[in-house]
Design a protein around this nucleic acid. Sequence first.
DNA 1: TTAAATTTTGGCCATGCGGTCAGAAAATGA
DNA 2: TCATTTTCTGACCGCATGGCCAAAATTTAA
Lengths: 205, 205
Amino acid sequence: MRSENEPSGQKGRSFIEEARRAQIIASAVEVIAEQGFARASLARIAQHAGISKGVISYHFDGKDELMEEVVVRVYTAISEHVLARMEGLSTATELLRTQILGVAEHMRAQRTQLRALGEIFANLRDADGKLRFGVNAGEEIYQALEQIYRLGQKTGEFRAFDVRVMALTQSAAVDAMFAYWINNPGHDLDAHARELADLFERAVR
Amino acid sequence: MRSENEPSGQKGRSFIEEARRAQIIASAVEVIAEQGFARASLARIAQHAGISKGVISYHFDGKDELMEEVVVRVYTAISEHVLARMEGLSTATELLRTQILGVAEHMRAQRTQLRALGEIFANLRDADGKLRFGVNAGEEIYQALEQIYRLGQKTGEFRAFDVRVMALTQSAAVDAMFAYWINNPGHDLDAHARELADLFERAVR
DNA sequence: TTAAATTTTGGCCATGCGGTCAGAAAATGA
DNA sequence: TCATTTTCTGACCGCATGGCCAAAATTTAA
């Protein structure tokens, strides 16, 4: 039996254990992306991974923890990539453009993860029936974007505007870009991202 | 027993029969909007309508037909309303501001139906697991917005930009505004809408 | 009034779900 | 080697679901 109750912390998790969890998460991502959230039962995820259903229950506290782990890992990967691209940049305008283009660049190679993320965001609910993750991406992202806007307003690059509205709008615009791209495979994601960068560059001036 | 097999046509449906169907559809919309697609079971819909579960099976060929009827009715009503509002406006800038300020108010009254529509579009699948309706749900709306942008580009009011990207972004921005407003009741919706109108007015120039 | 047609009820069914568990299997360490 | 721990299996549980239907209730028509 696994050594302790560890509801969310990653302490004392062996390499083997971590590998199994990663394998299960990868299967979950693929099943969710291919068949949708509603069909992503533990049985289907286990079958896709070539293991028994009980193994998932053994390595995760439950289906909810598995789903949250999927979200956490995909999100972490995105933010690491984007933050790396943003390093060394100084002006708010540069940061704004890089934020939009960097996310698109990363996700272009991660369609499966992106689709799974969207399914979970739209469907995962708590016991009360409320969405576990809001339709809104999250407060952290908004605050990060708002810092960029405030910087630009401070330096005079940007005009005066409501930074919360701008952050919400930029986040929604990027989400919509991905949603459209996923459902229209021929769509040019990078061109769309450049259009968005232009759009917001003008909107903030 | 109902007189015939009538998979989709509306022929030979009595007034009473039609009223029952409308009542069931209305309950389905409310349950889906409040609890999400996954929790909108026939039992919950029936309970919400104050009728026995079997009544739904009697008036509809199955759950799928009920869901499709919900989509058809709500979508038809919404598109008719939106198109009516667009008549009589002249300049592209007027149309743009009206879309954001006016349609926002319209959506406030229709948000239960819109939410139900979104849930069905995102979740209703056929036996193969494929989405019954694509996410091309907004296609008509996108095309309507694109007409405004092209008009503005033709008259020289607007700069050159990708009209599809702009339509997607504007639509997403308004949706995000409502999502944020629903989750943050103290949020000033009208001020948000004005910020958005300013944002897009600058973005298109 | 009375017979026929329509509509509703409430219980039943098979299926799939997330979760649990005893015991088998495999890995580990002495 | 052999005992101990970790990991896995496959069966099982209670529950909710969509669909079904005989019988009851209601409405309609003669």
